[in-house]
Design a protein around this nucleic acid. Structure first.
Lengths: 228, 228
DNA sequence: CGTCCCCTTGAGTTATTTCAACACTCGTGG
DNA sequence: CCACGAGTGTTGAAATAACTCAAGGGGACG
């Protein structure tokens, strides 16, 4: 089931010590490195669960990840998506506040949290950088909160496409690794509304949908207007 | 307009130096103290604006504060409310990501951010505590995201009342410092829907509404059921 | 006592959801 | 090579939760 993989991943110089457990040393951020290992997860596999002890910090080596919160009756809200290079699962407290799952088959670098803590105890610059990771998450969630609380379906879809485009750096098209269901649960909509909105954008000539998972941005300006 | 006030506020021991500017030394958190001063703000006065330089960190001495984000067309989303003892406006970046306004007349302790930075450079425990403040904000926002994305009007109101009750420690009643409009913009609803939901809870005997701003929790269990 | 602001209530509208059916894609195996 | 089936996505019609618009009620404060 689980594909251990001590090999490759991020390269680069390391400040942290090579001591402790794992094999390689990973750069969590530019100035924070610690020993860890790479682990493979298959599509829809859980990486960690909500309320589990946060003993590791994670970084996407390949593939894509979603972090979610679920209500007892099954309603789900996706907090964010994480792509190659993104750090996730970093907690100030003892447990994970969200659940993380693989969207696609993916490889994830795991770093022992204790090792990260040691690094931040010694190095106040490293501590600041990890604080910055949490602060960036917070900022993204503030944007998302405005979207969920006050934007209409079409605005949500448009904002989502533009955000995906910005994160991948591709200005002309986005290849979505996630299903309509994931998009819906991220945007606080139903899959039907997501589908209808995309179709509408296609009819308006704003995007093209050559396949389910690919969206070509034909008219960025119009999309930005839609995003309000 | 602005009521400067070097006097009282939080008492207690101080780790930080008494040097620099302001008069008194304030405990931002248990282990983080820095010199600052208290300033008065009147109802609806802006404390800081979105995208303004984050030169200060703030702590509520008396009254209540809201942090908001606004869309160009006037739609508003309130990120959180802050009550006595709460720290807000702490940023990892250079600018404030939200706008802060006084809900009621209030007194706010201001601490120069440079002073806080100096404290965290020296003291890794202090740094961790401030990271914890940001992490707590993030966790609250994750809960709120689920509410905004996936909960119905009645669930939002119920969750809101229970949260207010938890934050004040009052289990039998909550005195709301904020208007229906603030509640609506916090919960992603309209004032009419907020009003109707509260009336409904009153009709069901779950709460009593002796005045606009006071809610007595007659049946906590029922409220918890409603909150899903 | 009057005025302003905030809140509530009602009636009608609408955006989104729900329910249901159908279409497409892709991998598997006959 | 094609048939099959499961998973995934689209589309339509009906239902509904919440919104909008409009009017009126009630405190607070001068």
């Amino acid at each position: 089931m689980r594909n251990f993989d001590i090999d490759n991943g991020m390269g680069g110089a390391a400040i942290g010590s090579m001591a402790a457990s794992g094999g390689k040393v990973f750069n969590l951020t530019a100035g924070v490195a610690a020993p860890g290992f790479v682990m493979g997860f298959s599509r829809n596999e859980e990486i960690y669960g909500e309320d589990e002890p946060a003993d590791f910090v994670y970084k996407v080596v390949s593939g894509a990840v979603r972090t979610t919160r679920i209500l007892s009756d099954g309603r789900r809200q996706i907090a964010d998506f994480h792509f190659v290079g993104d750090v996730f699962g970093l907690e100030a407290g003892e447990t994970h506040s969200l659940c993380a799952e693989a969207i696609t088959d993916c490889r994830i670098a795991l770093v022992k949290r204790i090792a990260v803590d040691r690094a931040t105890d010694r190095d106040s610059l490293a501590a600041r950088e990890l604080w910055g990771v949490t602060a960036r998450d917070l900022r993204r969630l503030q944007d998302h909160m405005l979207l969920l609380g006050r934007k209409g379906a079409m605005e949500r879809i448009a904002a989502f496409l533009l955000d995906m485009s910005a994160r991948t750096g591709e200005r002309l098209a986005v290849d979505l690794p996630m299903s309509r269901s994931d998009i819906a649960d991220y945007l606080g909509l139903t899959i039907e509304t997501v589908s209808r909105s995309l179709t509408q954008l296609e009819r308006d000539g704003v995007v093209a949908l050559p396949s389910f998972r690919r969206v070509e941005l034909l008219n960025r300006a119009a999309l930005e207007d839609h995003a309000a």
